[in-house]
């Protein structure tokens, strides 16, 4: 693989000059594609992840991503592209999860149990597919933990098209989705189709998870899907600001991760996740420090009577 030799040649070249380093990396088309794919994915994941964290549907998001693994492995086994497998399986899984009837307050728990069941079974299927397809051994690691090597221009185009579709849909649905996420009863009374939005959201989340899976691997999708959004929401309670911050963090950790992975011998998934984790820990510490400032005591009003 030419990319691997190119990587070996380049490994010595870290110069502490960001412009030079970027120019050096971008001399290789595969790195340009990696940055393009990474950026597209980071933006889509950060925005979708922001809603996912707000809606407390991280478990569903994780499942959608994990389902991508048998999808990709199955697609390769069937002779199709892995990307196609990710998208088809993730979106199909989103529809299945959305189809689970939800009633009453325990809905979340019921959904979680079903989701977990499906997730375990499909992960096992993916394992079987990779065993059936003999030549995929290195591929399993990159499917599970991510890789930035060998991303083709065609793949970048697909990622861009899907991300654009997801963002446009989200721009259209954004406000009612936010309303339905935070305050479903009032939203429903105002005529917001809460249930339909929930389904639409899961489908979009499936597409975003399929994108993130192709960069960070199915097991590390939270690096882009949860961590930037959780960090941003820790830092500010203003929706627009927090959404923008989430995108900025996701793009930053992706670029830093790609750069570090390029100049070192260690895998991309580790670096992206570690940077995102570091950002989250710093944000929590900052919140903790801010919380030390004197503040009016907030007592729950319940239980007085």
């Amino acid at each position: 693989m030419t990319a691997v030799t190119a990587l070996a040649d380049a490994s010595a070249g870290w110069s502490w000059n960001p412009v030079d380093d970027l120019r050096q990396m971008w001399a290789y088309p595969f790195m340009v594609n990696a940055f393009r794919a990474g950026t597209i994915t980071a933006v889509a994941s950060a925005v979708m992840g922001w809603f996912m964290v707000l809606r407390r549907q991280s478990f569903a998001g994780h499942t959608l991503a994990v389902v991508g693994f048998p999808g990709a492995a199955g697609a390769v086994l069937a002779g199709a592209s892995a990307a196609c497998g990710y998208f088809v399986f993730c979106v199909a899984a989103a529809l299945v999860i959305a189809a689970v009837p939800r009633t009453g307050r325990d809905a979340g728990a019921q959904e979680a149990a079903l989701t977990g069941t499906v997730q375990a079974f499909l992960l096992a299927c993916g394992f079987l597919f990779t065993a059936l397809y003999k030549g995929l051994l290195g591929g399993v690691t990159s499917m599970l933990f991510g890789s930035f090597l060998g991303i083709t221009t065609g793949q970048v185009r697909v990622l861009l098209a899907v991300a654009a579709a997801v963002l446009v849909a989200l721009a259209a649905l954004g406000r009612p989705l936010l309303f339905a996420s935070v305050d479903p009863d009032v939203a429903a009374a105002r005529g917001v189709p809460v249930r339909l939005l929930s389904t639409g959201f899961l489908v979009l989340l499936g597409a975003a998870a399929a994108e993130a899976s192709q960069i960070t691997g199915t097991l590390l999708v939270f690096a882009l899907l949860v961590m930037p959004a959780a960090t941003a929401q820790t830092l500010t309670a203003r929706p627009v600001r927090s959404l923008a911050l989430s995108v900025a963090i996701a793009v930053a950790v992706t670029w830093l991760g790609l750069t570090t992975a390029y100049y070192s011998d260690y895998p991309l998934g580790f670096f992206v996740t570690t940077y995102a984790f570091a950002a989250y820990v710093l944000a929590r510490l900052a919140r903790l420090a801010a919380g030390r400032l004197p503040r009016r005591a907030l007592l729950p009003a319940a239980g007085a009577a």
Binding site: G174, R175, F179
Partner: peptide, 9 residues
């Protein structure tokens, strides 16, 4: 959200 949370776009 009570003001315009139900509007699309």
């Amino acid at each position: 959200l009570g003001w315009d949370g139900d509007r699309w776009g």
